[in-house]
Amino acid sequence: MRESAAERHDRLLALVRERGTARVSELAERLGVSPVTARRDVEALAAQGLLDRVHGQVSWPRRGAAGRSGEGLVLGLLVPSATYYFAEVIRGAHEAAARAGARLVLRISDYRPEEDRARVEGLLAAGAEGVLVAPGWRGLPEDRLAYGDWLAELPVPAVLLERRAEPGSPLDGLDRVASDHAHGVLLALRHLLSLGHATPLLVARRDSPTAFAVRAGYAEALGTLGLKEPRPVIDSVPAEADPEGFERAVRALHEAVGSGLASAALVHNDVDAIEIVQRLAELGVRVPQDLALIAYDDEVAALADTPLTAVAPPKRQVGRHATELLVERLAEASDEEAARRHLSLLPWLRVRDSCGAQPTPSI
């Protein structure tokens, strides 16, 4: 497989970081590329502030006291996707880095946790002095166990994003910033109960840490509210990936409504919720007249034909607070007694038409 420019840049930066100073001709030989290519790469990296270039040589950039307050820092960010949920996390991280005078370098894992470590090493080679990491776990417990502890061994400060570590594991000792999805689920159930509905059903995926957190939050909320589970959680799948599985989920919800077992449901996520509402309408079930529905994530919920009430995790704030925490941690690098933090941010409920309540006025 042909090496990409980004991969070659990572190797070049790793060589300079290891040596401190190197000639461009030497880098070309070590990288196995032409002097012209090496020179072009050096110029590009120097323009980004990742290298210092003087008279045919390059060196690792020096940072003085200003770097300790954030100015001139290079921060790494690894997320499983740059779209949907994590687009807002990235935006918040970028805004906070810019305010601190730091540069943010991004890598995407595409939910391949087995590649997370190599991608973080690429961030370090690119000059990252601290990293923000949302591992590409697919929600399976074995992912968290098999692809996590290495983060605690990194030579630079790390902050875990939107992920919770196994209690007592090395990863549990890291700083982390995450949405409190259990609180979000509790908000949704309380709202539906306040509208006079019996115990709401949960329709949820099993393909991400958020999905499993929503499921766990549902069980916890039932206990908090003194409710019994009306029936097991309905497994949801993307309609385009598994049409038959999607249809089974819709039929199960349709049956629950038709039999009088349920008049309200929480659906993770809002893309699935929109498609479920459309299919239910074809089967004669109307939202909110026959079924009050709340979606989880609030990425596109407001764009449905019947705008969906939705739980909105504070995604942008997660990125912002995590970046601010990492900058602070780098400033405290010499303080061995600086306390680590587990910061939970509370989602909020955006009330629209799909639950049958008066929508929240726009601000």
Rank of each mutant, 00 (worst) to 15 (best):
A221P: 13
P157L: 01
R163Y: 00
D272L: 05
T21D: 13
V214T: 04
P113N: 05
A198T: 14
R329C: 00
E166K: 10
R63S: 15
D116Y: 07
G226T: 07
E282G: 13
G217C: 01
L283W: 12
L161V: 07
R320A: 10
D149I: 03
Q289K: 12
G196S: 12
S194N: 12
L283P: 12
A339M: 07
L187F: 08
V318D: 02
R11F: 00
P307L: 08
Q317C: 00
A96N: 10
A213W: 09
D298N: 15
A65Y: 05
L161K: 13
A152T: 06
R163C: 02
G226C: 10
V214Q: 10
V203L: 14
E153A: 11
F246E: 04
A14G: 12
A198S: 15
D290T: 08
R316M: 05
R248H: 09
G217Y: 03
S208T: 07
A93E: 03
S179C: 10
L189I: 13
A38C: 04
R107T: 11
G319R: 06
S208P: 05
G20T: 07
A338P: 06
D180E: 14
G130C: 05
R176N: 13
R320E: 08
G76V: 03
G70P: 10
S4H: 11
I108V: 12
E142H: 06
A339I: 02
S259L: 01
A256K: 08
A295T: 07
F212H: 14
Y147W: 09
L154F: 05
T21Q: 13
L326T: 02
A322M: 01
A178E: 14
D10G: 04
L308K: 12
A221Q: 11
E26H: 12
L192A: 12
V58H: 04
P61Y: 01
P170A: 00
R17T: 15
A125D: 14
I90Q: 13
R350L: 09
E121M: 11
L31T: 02
L345E: 10
R163I: 01
G319Q: 03
D52V: 02
E166P: 01
A82N: 13
V89T: 15
A188R: 12
H191E: 11
L266E: 02
R320Q: 10
G284C: 05
R63Y: 10
E114W: 10
P155K: 03
R215Y: 06
D172N: 08
P200Q: 08
L145R: 15
S109L: 07
R68D: 08
V327F: 05
V54C: 05
H55V: 10
D235M: 05
R279P: 08
L349Q: 06
A281D: 15
R286P: 04
E332I: 02
D242S: 11
V133C: 09
A249E: 13
V267R: 09
V89C: 12
E324Y: 04
L13Y: 00
L189C: 10
R8G: 08
A96W: 02
R19Y: 00
S81E: 11
